[in-house]
Design a protein around this nucleic acid. Sequence first.
RNA 1: GCGGGAGUGCCGGAGUCUGGAAAACGGAUACGGUCGAGGUCCGUAUGGCUUAGUGCCUACGCAGGUUCAAAUCCUGUCUCCCGCACCA
Length: 826
Amino acid sequence: MKEFRDIELKWQKKWEKDKVFEAEENRKKEKCYIVEFFPYPSSYGLHMGHAINYSIGDVFARYKRLKGFSVLYPMGYDAFGLPAENAAIKEGVHPRKYTEKSIQNFLYQQKRLGLSYDWNRLIKTCDVKYYKWNQWLFLKFFEKGLAYRTKAPANWCDSCGTVLANEQVEDGECWRCRSKVEIKQLEQWFLRITKYADELLSDLKKLDGWPHRIKLMQENWIGRSQGTEIDFKLKGSNEKLKVFTTRPDTLWGVTFMVLAPENPLVTELVKGTMYEKKTKDFIDKVVLEEKFERTAEDKEKEGLFIGKYAINPVNRDDVPIYIANFVLLEYGTGAVMAVPAHDQRDFEFAKKYKLPIKIVIKPENHDLDPEKMMKAYIEPGIIVNSDKKFNGKKNLEASTEISKYLEEKKLGRKMVQYKLRDWLISRQRYWGTPIPIIYCEKCGAVPAEIPVLLPEDVKFSGKGNPLARNEKFVNARCSKCSGKARRETDTMDSFIDSSWYFLRYCDNKNDKKIFDSKKVDYWVPLDYYIGGAEHAVMHLLYCRFFTKALRDLGLLKIDEPVINLFNQGMINKGGEKMSKSRGNIVDPMSIVDNYGADTLRTYLLFLSAPDKDKEWDDEAIDGVYRFLRKIYSFKERVKVKSSIKDKLLESKLNRTIKEVALDIEEFKFNLAISRLMQLTNFIYNNKENVSLKVFETSFGKILIMLSCFAPHLAEELWKGEGYVCLAEWPDVDESKIDESLEKEEEQTEKIIEDINHVVKLIKKDVKKCFVYTLPKEEKIYKDNIETISMKTNLEIKIFSVNDKNKYDPEKKAAKAKAGKPAIYLE
RNA sequence: GCGGGAGUGCCGGAGUCUGGAAAACGGAUACGGUCGAGGUCCGUAUGGCUUAGUGCCUACGCAGGUUCAAAUCCUGUCUCCCGCACCA
């Protein structure tokens, strides 16, 4: 509808001109900081998921403003990243141009949705004013030993031409392009996130406002396990082989050992022996070809004896050393002691390679026979065949004693292990923040002067990192000795950008400091952070890590960045996720063109609770459109015939104000909208029977509530001072809420329904209707006689059942019950 | 395998925390009305039976249990979605 379009554009312009949504640190007000995951600006523009995401945040921001909060609600763009660079290679556009264009498109579309961002706080991560502070932070981390460089096996995505962090590998595939990831040995920069592993885990308990499942996913990802590290001596050598186990109680049951094939010790051990060739072949096969299939649980276990033995420190047994595909270098010490009797993996391996199975724990009631066992016995039991100190004890209790015993004998120590690895942040790509390091022939890796500008003049060939071929960029002077030096050409993972952007919003124009702590302290932590669940173990873990690291640098006073995390549901169409490849996407902007932004926003929130998945329905949107048009129709006031519905309207209005506020606080926007619909329908149906004064004050209050969902329409119809979006949320007048009056209305509706029902049944021409009520209900129906008459199109006469003079030729009055009067028609 | 979430009319979804006449709100379809036609708008119907009536039966994935009373609480089970997965 063109009218809606004009209205929306008009108000969008006015809001912008009057800087209506600019935030300020008003210390007299309570603050509320609301952020949505900032988008990667793709050239396709907003998709429906964005539209939902921002609609949720906008409703809440608008609501909090109406409630008198000082609200910061900013937007930014996660503008570095691969798609822009790939487009550059494919289409020959410079990534900066491509990105700027996409940003302009996003910005235009977001404004067209009427989102109430403080655009003055805009952030673009590809802007040197932003990424300079990435570099600053990196150098701080470097100084504190939180950033370090090392040669390590890295996840390599050949199609992206770069390495990936563990979090960015999903099922052995690149999270972005879905191609197979391989392992390469490379010298790379890491951030020591593992330093915070324990705190990241234990602080999850503080996050009451986070969805349970996100916390669980992080907990699993961090993967803390407590155990014991035990030293095995190599036979015929003084060298030690360390293993990590959570089951020291099974130590006497060790019958072999297994090393991860890529464990550097392995090549050393077989050097010069007859096993060297076989071992090398095995390693090549397992490590290079099968890195990721290898971690599947149903993968057949494969191993190889490497000709060496270790000595069990507690019983001096010789145990053969194997390498096998089921042991991972990254976890623990990359070596395990194998106890086939009590570990399923070891059991399967032992069966396959005919290794002995020795029972050291048995159930209380019966004995185990290693020959007949079909699987490992992993339940609790009694220790047997071990040291006499422990035999006969319950294994769970003995476990700690054994660990202590090992510690005393200096054979082992208690230890905590994590699955969490350090964060690999080097990317062999152009479109990112340059890592501000210079390699000097004399001084080694030294900090570069920042900002290290990303050179604009580069050539994209599609192979390798264009920065590395840019002589002007690469050649540098050492910042310490001015000697000949070479610049680091890797750029940072763009997840660095998103790990702290919410802090920069608070002071986005500061060119002296990363941010002014006073400003940040006022706004952070985020009161509400809204976005999809796909970032559970990437962004949401990294930003927690950065918060803690920045706190330890003295820049922040908080431990956790986000109080309440809200995950919106996914939008489906035809039972499937909306996606380009399925061809079932609906472009939000096409809906805006046809129905307007107000309709789209309201519809998206009305579909279902914001945290639930949604099913897009092309037709159902008409319902919301009708609702908004109905509201718009009140622009022209009809003739007032009476004021008999004033009290009822005020009652409903006040109840609605109360309920809608509660619904919004609980993010039940779908319910809030349905209540506004009900109230609107009531007014619409009774518009001639409400006095002008009551109508206008009520309608004004409705518009304030409506302004959260359909802000343009609300502004257009608002007759109060200033902007409706800067008004005050209406107070609830409890005294106006009249339960019995509303009940009367229900009863009236009911009798109308009954009369109409009967009229239809008897299929006769009816003109008059006689209603017989219980004496105490007589008044209710008499008060509403006009409504009943009007809606049944009959002449109505109401009698109390005890009225002796009533007209009742067929003695129907006897059927009257409480709330259900009897009827006679003629 | 482990963990999390969900199953309610023709459809999307309320209701579940806190047990008390299930189906708010919206959509679709059909019929009727309004209208010059279309759209709009209004009304009625959409599990079964029955009717000068407001009644009865059946129903909240399935099966049990607790209770005067269960969509709601408990136990078991099936299906679907999501996450993790040889972590020693």
